[in-house]
Amino acid sequence: MDLYKELGNAIQKNIFGEWEKVTVKIESSLKKMCSFQAEYVLSSKETKELKFPVLTVSDLMDSVFELQESMLTEHKWNKAVYTLEKNGRFDMEFEWDQALQDKWEKG
């Protein structure tokens, strides 16, 4: 699975109105949990929350875990921000947050 393509497809299927930019924030502890927070900016500059159906979230979680695992030796991360612009340009930034990881491990 290709997380970048899956996110793009999920956005296209679940966004409404004339949008300019979408941001999806991901927090994930490898194979344990994963959450998504998405919002988009309309042409009017209004910001709206973007929700994905449960089945879409399940597929996205699998792809997040696959990407995390494939990057583990080079770049460990538990936070990511995916940005997609209307013109098709996208970016994904990755970050390691030790305090967040410690919180998850303590339960």
Rank of each mutant, 00 (worst) to 15 (best):
35 S>I: 15
53 P>K: 06
58 S>N: 10
33 M>Q: 13
56 T>N: 02
65 F>A: 05
42 L>Y: 03
14 N>L: 12
76 K>M: 08
59 D>A: 14
36 F>G: 02
34 C>A: 14
84 L>H: 00
36 F>K: 00
6 E>G: 08
51 K>V: 04
11 I>A: 04
71 M>Q: 12
66 E>A: 12
89 R>I: 11
59 D>H: 09
105 E>K: 12
59 D>T: 14
65 F>G: 04
84 L>Q: 03
30 L>W: 02
25 K>G: 12
67 L>P: 02
87 N>I: 11
79 K>N: 10
96 W>T: 04
40 Y>E: 10
25 K>R: 13
1 M>D: 15
67 L>W: 05
91 D>Y: 03
2 D>N: 15
15 I>F: 02
90 F>V: 10
45 K>V: 15
1 M>C: 13
70 S>L: 05
48 K>H: 11
19 W>H: 04
40 Y>D: 09
86 K>A: 08
96 W>Y: 12
90 F>G: 03
43 S>T: 05
27 E>Y: 09
82 Y>Q: 07
63 S>L: 10
54 V>H: 15
72 L>K: 08
70 S>I: 12
92 M>D: 03
30 L>I: 13
60 L>F: 03
95 E>C: 03
8 G>V: 03
56 T>R: 07
93 E>G: 03
65 F>E: 01
52 F>E: 12
69 E>K: 00
29 S>L: 15
74 E>C: 05
61 M>L: 11
59 D>F: 10
31 K>Y: 14
10 A>D: 13
95 E>D: 07
93 E>P: 00
101 Q>F: 06
26 I>A: 04
102 D>Y: 08
28 S>N: 11
83 T>W: 06
17 G>A: 02
64 V>I: 03
87 N>G: 02
49 E>R: 12
94 F>M: 01
81 V>G: 01
40 Y>L: 10
46 E>L: 11
51 K>C: 07
88 G>D: 06
70 S>V: 03
80 A>F: 03
33 M>F: 08
